[in-house]
Design a protein around this nucleic acid. Structure first.
Lengths: 265, 265
DNA sequence: TTGCTCCTCACGTCACGTGAGGTGGC
DNA sequence: TTGCTCCTCACGTCACGTGAGGTGGC
């Protein structure tokens, strides 16, 4: 009835989409095939351009084409309701991107990508007391995995970790463990180190109980994973764990006494 | 060397990705294939989970996997530089979505999707002076297309349109044109209407020149399109345009005197 | 006449999703 | 033993992009 004046390229340009996209919308049934001229060219009307603009607006807002097709057929009330929904989606998407922006922007250091700021600060403190870079990196990796599981508890845990580091004996223990990385598995110094560990653990277990009383904290598998990671960096740790078991303690990442449970280093 | 303890499902869960995604990252070379256990199952380490978390963080920020692969191999400096770029992309994407949100949210009426607020207000005013809904819709469609081409000029143009509507003779003309939609092509009332049109055009052309002095405004094709659209709603317009030509004027959407040019209704 | 646009297949891309058919672990 | 997880193909999806090979318009 209404004869179209625009070629597909002109219509596409006016609507700000590609020629291929217009053909795709025909295929998907979003836009009716228009009349053809004498040479078989499609000829478009202003209505077609308006429809293309609608498709583009909704499409760029993230609405799937199948949904766009429904909306184009909907009456004004349905359409208005759908727009509310589209708006909610857009808001959620914007929030998601802003979170990622914060995650990416706040962390210029590659190794610390996706680590919360508190953890980054804690790792700096470990460097400060003399921990080697590989050990710091391993700590960082462990925290990165933990943070991905239970981000809410990170601030409290890190706060306790910082209080631990305020204790000189604890700092000393950390460095002593680092030295042990070069020891043989049957080095005699491991025995006294185990004694020392138990001693310090006893004095600190109460503080940890206060931090995380429920303590179903990390899943068993995750703890196994982090134990394995620790042993890979610090091979004599395997022997140390055995020595700790002789003294009534099990585990490492989530070191605990025979019955109760609480995490340490 | 380091033996993995996690199955693919466990690693995926800890990293917050799907099992299929992990296999896909192996295929794409983003994550090295880990050791297999006795039953041929892949076994993952903490390092693998950390890499998966990095891939996920970058991927969710919109970085293509090919780029993620590069970044995983980059040193800290390159990585930091790349993060700046990623952040810029995220900002651009957020702005884009916010614009769309404004476009979608501010316009609950389906017919007016993607129309600037000024135009919506102007259309309401047309309704107010007694224009029928189909005519208003056609006006809206025309403005939607125009707005998509030259959004910056819309406020000025609409302001002038509103000043036009302040003139009683102009409002009267609009309604008279609407009546004409039912007339025959050879209705005798078209002649005096053409005279009236010329008369009013003369009084207003100066104001329009002031609004848009450069006036390469709309492309010739777009004007043709809008003319065709106007004729389709108002068939006697074809005849009216002929009558106007006899009086020394050409066009409709971009009506002008033989030499100069300026737009009208 | 040259180059740009249009036409119709039809395969490619991106980041996985989703069975298909079979085996291993708790 | 049942169900959940793992394995490897391999095709499907979404919204087009990108030639391939040919014709029409200025």
């Amino acid at each position: 009835m209404i004869e179209g004046v625009l070629t597909i390229g002109e219509a596409a340009r006016l609507a700000g989409v590609t020629v291929r996209a217009v053909r795709h919308y025909h295929q998907r049934g979003l836009l009716a095939e228009p009349e053809r001229d004498a040479s078989g060219y499609r000829r478009y009307t202003a209505d077609d351009v308006v429809t293309l603009l609608r498709i583009r607006t909704l499409g760029e807002a993230g609405v799937p084409l199948a949904r766009v097709a429904e909306l184009l057929r909907a009456d004004d009330d349905e359409f208005a309701a759908a727009l509310t929904e589209v708006d909610a989606q857009l808001r959620a998407e914007i929030r998601r991107l802003q979170k990622h922006r914060a995650a990416v922007a706040a962390l210029p250091r590659g190794a610390e990508l996706a680590l919360p700021a508190e953890v980054v600060a804690y790792l700096d403190r470990l460097r400060g007391i003399g921990l080697r870079e590989d050990a710091v990196r391993m700590e960082g990796d462990a925290w990165m995995i933990i943070a991905a599981q239970i981000p809410d508890r990170i601030p409290v845990w890190i706060a306790q970790k910082n209080r631990d580091l305020d204790v000189p004996e604890f700092r000393e223990l950390y460095l002593r463990l680092q030295e042990a990385s070069d020891w043989d598995v049957d080095d005699p110094r491991l025995e006294p180190l185990a004694d020392r560990l138990v001693e310090i653990f006893e004095t600190m277990t109460e503080a940890w109980d206060a931090v995380d009383p429920t303590s179903d904290g990390l899943s068993r598998r995750l703890v196994q994973l982090l134990d394995a990671q620790a042993v890979s960096l610090l091979p004599p740790l395997a022997r140390l764990v055995v020595l700790l078991e002789e003294r009534g303690y099990t585990g490492w990442t989530d070191m605990s006494r025979a019955d109760d449970s609480q995490s340490a280093p």
